Simulated scan of single mutants.
Amino acid sequence: MTTEPIMEPVVAQAEPYEVVVTAGRTYWWCSCGLSKKQPFCDGTHKGTGLSPLAWKAEEDGTAWFCGCKKTGGHPMCDGSHNGL
């Protein structure tokens, strides 16, 4: 059995993505930083050893998804981009 090497995530942008979310909907956050549909997965992670993260909105409103991919609170921004 072969395993894919795990690469470090790429910084997609050094600030969060503001997204209007809908209660009950599941969003697939890009964890690799390579997706062209940031902050969401478009399948570009294949071969990186990284996978998207599912996040389900509990209520309608605005969510701030991490753009730098360094957050400790995946998938939401925790301000880690301020240290880049």
Rank of each mutant, 00 (worst) to 15 (best):
M1C: 10
M1Q: 10
T2V: 14
T2M: 05
T2F: 07
T2R: 09
T2C: 01
E4D: 13
P5D: 01
P5F: 00
I6R: 07
I6S: 03
M7N: 06
M7P: 00
M7I: 15
E8T: 07
P9E: 04
P9Q: 05
P9R: 02
V10R: 13
V10D: 09
V11K: 15
A12S: 13
A14Y: 11
E15Y: 14
P16G: 08
P16Q: 08
Y17T: 04
E18F: 00
V19A: 10
V20F: 01
V21D: 03
V21Q: 06
T22C: 04
T22Y: 02
A23F: 00
A23K: 02
A23L: 02
A23D: 07
G24S: 08
G24M: 03
R25P: 01
R25G: 00
R25C: 01
T26D: 09
T26C: 08
W28S: 11
W29T: 03
W29Q: 03
C30N: 11
C30I: 10
C32E: 05
C32P: 09
G33D: 14
G33P: 10
G33K: 11
G33W: 12
L34T: 11
S35P: 08
K36W: 10
K36M: 11
K37Y: 06
K37S: 15
K37N: 15
Q38S: 12
P39M: 12
P39W: 12
P39A: 14
F40K: 04
F40A: 05
C41K: 08
D42C: 12
D42K: 09
T44C: 10
T44V: 00
H45V: 02
H45P: 01
K46L: 10
G47H: 00
G47A: 00
T48P: 07
G49A: 02
G49W: 01
G49C: 04
L50V: 03
L50R: 07
S51L: 04
L53E: 09
L53T: 11
A54W: 03
W55Y: 12
K56E: 08
A57L: 05
A57R: 11
A57T: 05
E58L: 00
E58I: 00
E59I: 01
D60L: 01
G61R: 01
G61A: 01
G61W: 02
T62C: 03
A63R: 14
A63V: 08
W64P: 05
W64A: 04
W64C: 07
F65Y: 10
F65M: 04
C66A: 14
C66P: 14
C66S: 12
G67I: 06
G67C: 10
G67W: 12
K69E: 06
K69S: 08
T71S: 15
T71N: 09
G73H: 14
H74T: 15
P75A: 06
P75E: 05
P75I: 03
M76C: 03
M76E: 14
M76W: 15
C77L: 09
C77I: 03
S80F: 04
S80T: 14
H81Y: 13
H81Q: 11
H81G: 12
H81D: 13
N82M: 13
N82Q: 15
G83S: 14
L84D: 06
L84V: 13
L84A: 09
L84C: 06
